[in-house]
Amino acid sequence: MKAVITIVGQDRVGIVAMVSEILAVNSVNILNINQNILDGFFNMVMIVDMASSKVSLKDMQQILKGKGDELGLDIKAQHEDIFQIMHRI
């Protein structure tokens, strides 16, 4: 199963490293990263493969949300199908 992780918040050093580490520790494979800075705000969208993940999507959401709250970032993980079904026929 693929998931989409979106991160929005104030830019700072090490955001990508921090999220990547969480994913690596849990055996979640990054398929695509797209990142930019808009008006000083950090926007990142990651598409990840959770086929070998050690944790469920629900648990991953909690881990990322916890880390996001700690750093003042809004981090969400969603099942990819909601985007696929809306934008692809």
Binding site: V4, T6, N32, N34, V45, K76, F83, M86, H87, R88
Partner: peptide
């Protein structure tokens, strides 16, 4: 592959 615009549009 989904684009960043599409993903952000859904979440907006």
């Amino acid at each position: 592959m989904l684009t960043i615009q599409e993903i952000l549009e859904t979440n907006r």
